Simulated scan of single mutants.
Amino acid sequence: MELALYGEDGFYRRGERPAEHFRTSVSASSRFTSALARLLGEVDEALGRPDRLDVVDVGAGCAGILRHLLGHAGPDLAERLRPIAVEVAPRPDGLPDAIEWRSTLPESVTGLVIANEWLDNVPLDVVEQTDRGPRLVEVCRTSGTERLGPPPTPEDLDWAADWWPLTEPGDRAEIGHPRCRAWAAVVERLDAGLAVAMDYAHTRTSRPPYGSLTGYRDGATVAPVPDGSCDITAHVALDACAAAGERAGANATLLTTQRDALRALGLTGARPPLDLAHSDPRAYLVGLRTAGEEAELLDASGLGGFGWLAQSVGMPLPPSLAGLRP
C-alpha cells in the first residue's frame, strides 16, 4: 500500500487528483468549504484573533479547500491567515503564492488543521483470523493475488485486541495503529487550535467483518491491486484515532457524522419557497441548486455518513460543534 500510493511510481506521487477518480465533499459543492470557513472563523475567535492564524490542509490534493478559504477571507483575516497544503504530489500550476506547499506537517500550528479523506490513505496491514491464529495478508504487487503470511507483530495484536478483535476464521482486521500515530502527530503539533478529520469511518461496534480495503480508478470501484494504477483505501477506525489524539494532548473531543457537523455549521438542504419561483425565478433556481448540493453533502447514505473527529488543544470545541451529541 505504501509503495502503491507513495512510492516512486505511486498513485499520488504521479500527481493524481482525487476528484478525477472519486467524488469528494470538496468537489461536490463549495457549500462544504463555506461550512469550513465558518468553522475557521469560530477557531479564530476562540483563539483571540491571533496575529498569525494557520490553516493546514493535510492531504490537500489540488488545495481546493485552501483556495476557497483564502479567496473568501475578509481583509483582516486575509492579512493574518497562513494557509499550508501538506501533499506528496507536485505543487499544482496556478496555485496562489500565499499558499505554502510542503510534503510534511509543519512543526507547530496555531489555528485549524483539516484532514479530509487523508487517514483512509495512510497505509496499513491486513490480518486474517485462521484456525492457527491471526496471520498477515500478503499481496502480489502486480496481480493483487493474496496469500496468508506470518503472524502479526505484538503491536498489531495489541491494537487488534483493543480496537478490532477477531473471533471467527476468515474474519479480517485492518490494523490501524499507523493511522493512530499519524493523527497523534497532527494533534501534537497543535500549540492551540482545532484538528478535524473527515473520512469513511467505523467504530468498534460496527467494524466490517471482512474489512473495507478497496480501490478507485476513473470513477469506478476496482480491485485494490497495489501496482500504482489506482487509489487504495480502507475505512478509518476513528474511535481509535480519537484515543490516540487524547494521549497526544487533545483536551476536548467530538466524534460525530458529517451530516450532523455540517447541519450544525448552517447547511440545511432546504428547498427555497415556491413563491420565489414567481417573484425571482433566477434566485429560485440558485436556491434549488444550493439545496441539491447541500442535500448531497448531508445524505446519511453518502457523504453525510462520513465520520468527523474534532479535537482541540488550548481551546474548547467551537460553539457550532460543542452542542452536538457525541
Rank of each mutant, 00 (worst) to 15 (best):
R147L: 02
S30Q: 11
C241K: 03
G287F: 01
E100S: 10
D260G: 10
A252I: 05
M198L: 15
G149W: 10
P208R: 07
G7N: 04
D76R: 15
W164R: 05
L157I: 15
P281A: 00
R282S: 06
E246M: 10
W101T: 11
P178E: 05
N251K: 09
P209C: 11
T221P: 14
A89M: 02
D54T: 03
L124H: 08
V137M: 03
M315H: 03
W164M: 11
R282H: 05
R189H: 11
N251E: 01
V55L: 12
L124S: 10
G71N: 04
L309Y: 04
D227E: 10
L136N: 04
W163P: 14
S229H: 07
L36Q: 05
E20T: 03
L136P: 04
L5G: 02
I114N: 00
V127A: 12
D299N: 14
T205Q: 14
Y12H: 12
P169N: 12
A250T: 03
A248E: 12
A195I: 11
A243S: 01
P150A: 13
A85K: 15
G74R: 15
A264H: 05
A19E: 13
P92V: 08
V186H: 00
D93K: 06
A300M: 02
D218P: 09
R132G: 00
R80G: 08
H202S: 12
R325L: 14
P326I: 14
A252W: 08
C140H: 06
D299C: 15
A184Y: 05
Q129V: 01
A78D: 01
R247K: 10
V26W: 00
G94S: 07
C140T: 14
A185W: 04
I232G: 03
T233F: 10
L5I: 11
V55I: 15
G287M: 07
P123W: 11
L262H: 15
L324M: 06
G149S: 05
P50T: 02
N251T: 14
P90S: 07
R263S: 09
R67Y: 10
R247D: 00
Y6N: 09
D9S: 12
A197M: 09
D131E: 13
L238F: 14
D275F: 05
S320C: 10
Y12A: 03
L324Q: 01
F306D: 04
A28I: 10
H177D: 06
E117M: 09
S29R: 14
C230K: 10
L267Y: 05
T253Q: 01
E246Y: 06
L105H: 08
D162T: 13
G193T: 02
E296S: 12
M1C: 11
L119G: 09
A192R: 13
L309W: 01
R132T: 00
A28M: 10
